[in-house]
Computed example of a mutant assay.
Amino acid sequence: MTRDGITKLILRTSKQDRAAFDLLYRHTSSKLFGVCLHILGDRADAEEALQEVFLKVWAKADRFAVSEVSPISWLIAIARNQAIDRIRSRRPPSLEIDRARDVADPSPWPEAHILACDCVRLVHRCIDHLPKEKAEAVRSAYFDGESYAVLAARYNVPLNTMRTWLRRSLIKLRQAVED
């Protein structure tokens, strides 16, 4: 059957024309069955998939748009997708659960957590040794996320002075932590 003939059968099927649907089945079922069989690898499964394909064609023929795309390509896409969906539905649901056991826990080990807590305490102790204004500025900038401009306004210093305070404070902190 020609491309135009298949297109006309699909368009008539979209209007619920059973005779056109029957002709469409007779002219395309062997090719679509071959697609399903190739993907599924099982004759009985391919036959069931083919039935589902034609149920979809009957229900969705009105979605077919006449264009440069071949009507048989539209039908093959439906058959291919149906066969792939059948393969996906075969997978046991516990397969994903079994794979979940192999996923590493991203949380740190207890030892790493303790070390991190010790490091945090050390940093806070070192900050406490800075002059009061500079310690408050460091906490506000790096723990609370306040901008240099906000901090410069709060402490009534020029913006570049605030940057210098914070940079020098970080250098002192690094030296204190390394010691």
Rank of each mutant, 00 (worst) to 15 (best):
E47I: 05
R91W: 00
R99V: 05
A100S: 15
V57K: 01
Q51W: 01
R88A: 08
D98W: 09
S94D: 15
E47N: 12
I78G: 04
R88M: 01
E96K: 07
V35R: 03
Q51L: 05
S107R: 14
F54D: 02
P106C: 12
A59L: 14
L95F: 11
A79V: 07
V35E: 05
K60W: 04
I76L: 04
I76D: 03
I76G: 02
V66F: 06
V69G: 11
K60S: 09
E96M: 06
A65C: 12
D98N: 08
C36D: 01
E52L: 15
V35N: 04
A46M: 13
D102P: 02
R88L: 06
Q82M: 13
H38A: 13
S67N: 11
R63Y: 14
S89T: 14
I84D: 11
E96Q: 02
A100G: 12
V35M: 08
E47C: 09
P108Y: 15
D62P: 00
D98P: 00
P106M: 09
R101D: 12
I87Q: 10
Q82F: 08
D98S: 09
G41F: 11
W58I: 00
I78T: 09
A77Y: 07
V53T: 08
A77V: 13
W58T: 03
L37F: 15
E52I: 04
D102V: 04
A59Q: 14
A65M: 05
W109C: 14
P71E: 03
A44Q: 10
V53A: 04
N81L: 02
D98V: 01
P71D: 06
V53W: 05
V103I: 15
R91V: 08
D62V: 10
P92M: 04
W74P: 00
R43C: 10
S70P: 04
W109P: 11
R99I: 08
L40H: 03
A65L: 12
L75R: 07
W58C: 00
V35L: 08
L50Y: 08
Q51V: 03
D98M: 12
P92T: 13
E96W: 03
V66I: 08
I97S: 14
L37H: 12
F64Q: 01
S70F: 07
S67Q: 12
H38T: 10
V57L: 02
S94T: 15
S70I: 05
A79Q: 10
V35T: 11
G41A: 11
E96G: 02
Q82Y: 06
R63K: 11
A44D: 14
K60R: 13
V69H: 14
I76R: 11
Q51E: 06
R86K: 15
R88S: 11
L50P: 09
P92C: 04
L50Q: 13
A44H: 13
A61Q: 04
V57G: 01
R86V: 02
D102A: 13
E47T: 05
V103T: 13
D98I: 06
W74Y: 15
F54L: 05
D85G: 12
K60D: 09
L55C: 02
S73D: 05
I84H: 11
S67T: 13
K56F: 01
P93C: 07
W74K: 05
I97V: 10
D42T: 10
E48N: 06
P71Y: 06
D105G: 10
N81T: 12
